[in-house]
């Protein structure tokens, strides 16, 4: 296998890993809010979070590029130039995979029997104990499966990372773009091998997601 394949794959895995971690950090509180709280403008907020699901990735990528680019607000506010860099890829990936993670997290929370939380409180538990002993043990399969789904999704993204990162080999060339470049250069044999690796990886991740969902359901059926 061409060493530049491994470099591209490694970059993809790093971006996906960091993006998934950030999604967990941002998505879990957000999903809790959307699952259980009512506030004005909630529907609009939900629609905005789901937008990346229907928007062409190039459009999303274009806006992220404008936002992060040399003339964009991000540079003016923070002084950090993230376009065509690793940070920009992670930022775009978080936005792109947010709907997947958010939907899975929210489902996990909605499957939780609220009576369990109420009873835990009447049994004298402060909120942190309710979370650590009741909420987390019951929702972690859902949270993990949502995160794995977001990870797999980030691994396969193309349009957004092409717009935000360009395709700078060794710097922002992710594995999906690498394969595209191979095909453009008519190097079909190498493209086929690289694609097979990605196919295997994605399949393994999805099997894991399914197993975790089954575990989440097992809890749900015993609460009734």
């Amino acid at each position: 296998m061409d060493p530049s394949f491994w470099i591209a794959l490694r970059l993809s895995l790093e971006v996906a890993l960091l993006a998934s971690f950030l999604l967990l950090l941002v998505g879990v509180p957000l999903a809790w809010l959307l699952a259980f709280r009512r506030f004005p403008g909630k529907s609009i907020l939900e629609a905005i979070f789901l937008l990346p699901l229907v928007l062409p990735p190039t459009v999303l990528g274009f806006y992220v590029l404008l936002f992060l680019g040399p003339e964009g607000p991000w540079v003016r506010i923070t002084g950090l130039s993230w376009a065509f860099r690793f940070e920009g890829l992670v930022f775009a990936s978080v936005l792109f995979s947010l709907p997947f993670a958010l939907t899975a997290y929210r489902e996990a929370f909605l499957a939780l029997d609220r009576n369990l939380l109420d009873v835990a409180r009447t049994l004298g538990s402060p909120w942190w104990k309710v979370w650590s002993k009741v909420v987390f043990p019951l929702v972690w399969p859902g949270l993990l499966s949502g995160t794995l789904l977001a990870f797999a999704h980030t691994l396969g993204e193309f349009g957004v990372v092409l717009m935000v990162g360009g395709s700078i080999p060794g710097k922002t060339q992710m594995v999906s773009i690498y394969i595209y470049d191979l095909v453009q250069a008519l190097r079909f044999e190498e493209a086929a091998r690289a694609s097979l690796v990605l196919l295997g990886l994605s399949l393994a991740l999805l099997v894991l997601v399914r197993l975790l969902e089954a575990k989440g359901r097992a809890w749900k059926s015993t609460t009734a």
Binding site: D113, N115, L116, D118, V119, A120, R121, T122, L123, G124, S125, P126, K133, V134, P137, L138, W219, T222, T223, A224
Partner: peptide, 18 residues
Amino acid sequence: PERRPVGYLPQDLALFPH
């Protein structure tokens, strides 16, 4: 709720399934 000396049994009993 955590400071009331009551034992509350809801209709579905809400035993912790795990």
